[in-house]
Design a protein around this nucleic acid. Structure first.
Length: 440
DNA sequence: AATTTCTACAACCGCCGACGG
DNA sequence: CCCGTCGGCGGTTGTAGAAAT
């Protein structure tokens, strides 16, 4: 234990980095790569420890970092992911290309927690504050642990998922004070309120070549149908502009607790309570759905004057303009996910994968999702029914999944929308929790 | 204008797991 | 198997600038 060895060395500078130091580090890494971080400061002529250099590079100097304020979409995504992942900042950051875990952590601590509290939501448990207080009264031990770490709170959410008591209605749990922040004026000038009936707006990922583009060979055998799923963002809860959920017939699975997540290609276990454990070792590649019409900013690329992340990378196949439901299709694997290293916290696996399985692929540092797209994701027909029933009892699995091997698509009817938003949200969170491999 | 408080952000610290000798 | 090193993560602290008094 104790301090890192490099920190024992004398004459090491601490504190803020000067522009000269930045330049030295930037020049060195640009020319040589970082290699062994412990040797970087010496070779770069810096009076810093390797850790400090690494941190400076990752959090500030990296060229692929996104600058500027977080968009509303990013904030909402962080909140959603935090509800599932807890304080696993690195995994949350992996979903936000160009953002660092430190940045997200700071945003959460300085801003998002406050916002949630203002909305009457406990930032640790993502439940109404009143309910959290009740929980404290009833389960003082658990409540204390929840206060300590949000992961514990999420585990509690999962306990609820496993032992479904009448779940707190999302409408209750996440009803926002419309007077404070719930109004969302989109770029078309239409004022959206989350109290409106949520129109599920889905964004489909055609993982396997709807556009017929070539795809890298998967490193393991996996049917195309195993590789598709999607998130849907609905106008609920935290804000009108984004919602993250997992389609009832799909799941995305990985084990954030594992540093060496293993792919499994077979999924025959039933989605009983044991599913929560068994699923943690599986990995599923989700696609992403984003709102489009009620939040046209996603298509326009700007939200409230802030450049919208990724929007430009979505293919412009926005199929709808009627204001009720729409979808955009991601045409190939070469866009959103790959371009932005969209990663569901699978970096460890990826890292090992990069070292061993994909030595000939590009040397990009940001392989993450892009690399994962080259690996199979457990998804689709083999598991969808198993997953959907126990976890989505309130949602009829009425979305059919069709694949012909060359293209894959979801055919989704609107029945799901008939469900109360609260049910959808609660189930969404449960599914997300499961999907993210939250083990109990 | 001076001082205090607040806020956002950068950086540090301690710990952990992986890895190699 | 042990030990040291390293990279990485999350919690915490430090600090500069903004806002409030």
């Amino acid at each position: 234990m104790g301090r890192h060895s490099c920190c024992y060395k004398q004459k090491l500078r601490k504190g803020l980095w000067s522009p000269e130091e930045d330049e030295k580090l930037l020049n060195y890494i640009t020319k040589h790569g970082h290699g062994c971080w412990s040797s970087v400061p010496k070779l770069a002529g810096l009076q810093r420890c390797g850790k400090s250099c690494r941190l400076r590079w990752i959090n500030y100097l990296r060229p692929d970092l996104k600058r500027g304020a977080f968009s509303q979409q990013e904030e909402n995504l962080i909140i959603e992911l935090h509800a599932v992942l807890g304080n696993r900042w690195s995994q949350i950051a992996a979903q936000l290309p160009g953002r660092t875990d430190n940045e997200i952590k700071n945003l959460w601590n300085s801003c998002l927690k406050k916002k949630l509290r203002q909305r009457g939501i406990d930032p640790n448990t993502h439940k109404p504050l009143s309910e959290v207080e009740n929980d404290k009264d009833m389960l003082p031990t658990t409540a204390k642990s929840n206060e300590k770490t949000s992961i514990g709170s999420n585990e509690q959410n999962l306990i609820e998922a496993k032992n479904p008591k009448p779940p707190p209605m999302a409408a209750e749990r996440y009803t926002l004070d419309a007077s404070s922040s719930s109004k969302f004026e989109n770029s078309s000038g239409r004022n959206n309120s989350f109290t409106t009936t949520p129109a599920t707006q889905e964004f489909f990922l055609d993982r396997f070549g709807g556009s017929g583009t070539s795809h890298e060979t998967s490193s393991t055998s996996c049917r195309p149908s195993d590789l598709v799923g999607y998130f849907s963002f609905q106008h609920l809860n935290y804000g009108p502009d984004i919602r993250l959920s997992v389609h009832p017939n799909t799941s995305l699975c990985f084990n954030p607790n594992s540093r060496s997540s293993e792919m499994i290609s077979d999924y025959n276990s039933s989605m009983t309570s044991s599913m929560l454990h068994s699923i943690s070792s599986s990995i599923v590649k989700p696609s992403v759905s984003l709102p489009s019409d009620n939040n046209p900013s996603l298509g326009s690329g700007d939200v409230n004057g802030i450049h919208n992340w990724e929007s430009s990378t979505f293919s412009n196949n926005c199929s709808n303009s009627n204001g009720s439901s729409s979808s955009m299709e991601l045409q190939s694997s070469s866009n959103f996910f790959e371009n932005h290293a969209f990663s569901w916290g699978l970096t460890d696996h990826i890292k090992s994968d990069k070292d061993h399985a994909h030595p000939l692929e590009g040397d990009t540092e940001d392989i993450k999702w892009s690399e994962y797209l080259h690996t199979p994701f457990l998804m689709g027909s083999t598991i969808q029914n198993q997953i959907s029933q126990p976890m989505c009892s309130g949602i009829k699995p009425e979305t059919s999944f069709m694949t012909d091997g060359s293209s894959t698509s979801w055919h989704h009817n609107q029945h799901q929308q008939a469900l109360p938003a609260s049910d959808i949200y609660t189930k969404d969170l449960q599914r997300l929790a499961v999907a993210f491999g939250q083990t109990l």
